Computed example of a mutant assay.
Amino acid sequence: MKLSVNLFMTLDGVSQAPGSPEEDTRGEFSFGGWLMPLFDEGCGRAVDGWFSHTSALLLGRRTYDTFASHWPQVTDPDDRVADQINSGPKHVVTSSPTGDVWSSTTTVLDGDILARIRDLKALPGDELQVHGSIRLARALHQAGMVDLYRFLLAPVVVGAGAGIFGAEGPALTMTTSASTVTDSGVVALELTPGEFGTASAAVEDGTDTIEHPA
């Protein structure tokens, strides 16, 4: 399976607590719920498209608990996202029991967590998907294990908050495989990572140009 990271993100790279003020206040984060005023039908279609590729979910414990408090209550048979989350396989990185909300849950506990996740990727299927789970997503990004990044990039700036990208790298140049803009101005992006590259501004025969390394 491909490993995909699927996140909501502000313009300044924050993915913490998009859904409500109480969702995640770690670090005294006080801007929770920043996405909801902009979440329109286009955002819903984008997220529905993400889940159409889900073979299994890989979640951190906080995101798992957030999902478990919400999605079992969504019983609309036409809600593909709810159906996938409630009935599909879920793997949770945690050191404590997950309870019995979903029988389709397994835990990734012992040994080398990244090695365990590589084993999950080796299973047949479309995508092993990370949703939310910022610390887990950042660790997978830093380990170079992510095959596909999807973001809902909101025209919002919140300042300090948790996000997937940090000073630790790695440096990548992304290829945009899909992009749309919703009516509220949210950009839905699908990106594949590639080798980082540089170029230089130059002048050739009096013409402003870009000079690529040999």
Score class of each variant (00 low, 15 high):
139 A>D: 10
175 T>A: 10
6 N>R: 02
136 L>T: 01
186 V>H: 05
96 S>V: 14
21 P>E: 00
162 A>L: 12
99 G>K: 00
193 P>T: 03
104 S>T: 15
172 L>M: 09
125 G>L: 09
190 E>S: 11
94 T>W: 10
117 I>L: 11
83 D>L: 13
75 T>F: 04
140 L>A: 04
130 V>N: 03
29 F>M: 08
204 E>G: 02
41 E>I: 00
175 T>E: 15
36 M>D: 04
90 K>T: 10
173 T>A: 07
5 V>H: 02
70 H>I: 15
121 K>T: 01
139 A>M: 12
47 V>K: 00
113 I>H: 09
94 T>M: 07
96 S>I: 12
43 C>H: 01
32 G>Y: 06
80 R>P: 05
212 H>G: 05
116 R>H: 07
103 S>R: 11
41 E>L: 06
80 R>N: 15
27 G>W: 14
168 E>M: 11
151 F>Y: 15
140 L>G: 00
195 E>P: 06
87 S>G: 10
118 R>G: 10
203 V>D: 04
92 V>Y: 03
204 E>Y: 13
76 D>N: 14
198 T>L: 07
77 P>I: 00
22 E>Q: 10
85 I>Q: 00
197 G>L: 12
23 E>L: 05
147 D>I: 03
141 H>S: 10
14 V>A: 02
166 G>C: 09
29 F>W: 08
91 H>M: 14
142 Q>G: 11
165 F>E: 00
120 L>W: 13
